[in-house]
Design a protein around this nucleic acid. Sequence first.
DNA 1: CATTATAAATAGCGTTGCTAGATTTTCTAA
DNA 2: TTAGAAAATCTAGCAACGCTATTTATAATG
Lengths: 196, 196
Amino acid sequence: METTAVPNRIAERKLRDREVRRAQIISAARRIAELEGWPNVTVRRLSDEISYSQPVLYGHFESREGILAAVAIEGFQEIGLALEKARKRAKPGKIVEAVATAYLEFATSSPALYEAMFSLSLSIPFADANTPPELRFAFAQLMELFQGQGSKPEVLTELFWAGLHGIADLTRTKRFPPSRQKERVKMFVELFAFPS
Amino acid sequence: METTAVPNRIAERKLRDREVRRAQIISAARRIAELEGWPNVTVRRLSDEISYSQPVLYGHFESREGILAAVAIEGFQEIGLALEKARKRAKPGKIVEAVATAYLEFATSSPALYEAMFSLSLSIPFADANTPPELRFAFAQLMELFQGQGSKPEVLTELFWAGLHGIADLTRTKRFPPSRQKERVKMFVELFAFPS
DNA sequence: CATTATAAATAGCGTTGCTAGATTTTCTAA
DNA sequence: TTAGAAAATCTAGCAACGCTATTTATAATG
């Protein structure tokens, strides 16, 4: 019973090490992307950051795109939690405003992460059975807002999401001047606060 | 008077030829992008399509990105015209709906072009003095819709644009199922039809 | 300790955007 | 008409990219 127990502990340690390294890769990718942009997140650069040779990365991810996809999923996890927190802490009547603000705050404070989630065209399945739970959870937070009222909460949620994403994306790509952001959010919230 | 007239005609012809080739490059880029995606639009591939060597392309554009930027500007020109047409032909009371539909129709029918305009992060200046006129014109078409009513037509226009872009982008990247598109447009238009 | 299994590194392939330098074509002027 | 200048174009190659077959080093096993 001990001759098998030792190999188990070793195997477990190896697994832990693997996870640590995987996390390091994702973390390095995020950091570089946020500081220097996604084109600077090369496989060579990442292997340098974690002090391993390139092929090691391919033991963790299928391809460079796989790394970006992992970052994106981490992003969906985080935005989901941020939206949930905003929704639960908001005063009644200010819920829509709080969630909208949280969404845009997330996009503004981590533009490269937001870019990975939406703009880099990664092949993450969405509205089907293989959709990662992190994505479902994030979308569910938006759905909560329009659950009671109206006849088509799904469509309304989609429009709310589309509006927020549009603002975030056009701001991120410098189409919108950041100066009017407050006004924009105010008017946007009014549109969705009481959709007769 | 003739010794100078002849060189002029030659110079003019050369200029015409240059323009033709420039247009060929842009056209080939659009075609390939729409059929095979932007990653397949390589400088080698383009030089092949126009039957010239690679360096010739760099006599027309500063870089590969410069070619994509030219495609994007062509796209803004076209969407501007499409929106204007929709606005002018629409029945009174149906103007917002007509423009919204035209916008989404444009994005759906030329997804790669739309991607070049918005998703590929090209450095086209926007809200400053160097903004290309094609962009100003396109945005002006949206502004027309909310000119009379409300106190802040600019902000309202931005929100309308953001909403349309959000729908277009999330549909293009498979976040939204195309099935509910009609419903989405209907509800979206209602939100903006009478913003008290 | 010898052997086997596993983990990691080296080295290199094919492709990319881009460009210096050689070459050809075109125009100018004697 | 033709020699020389100017302009246009091509050839060939660089550095960097994603990715991988093969070799080498490390670790676990009997």
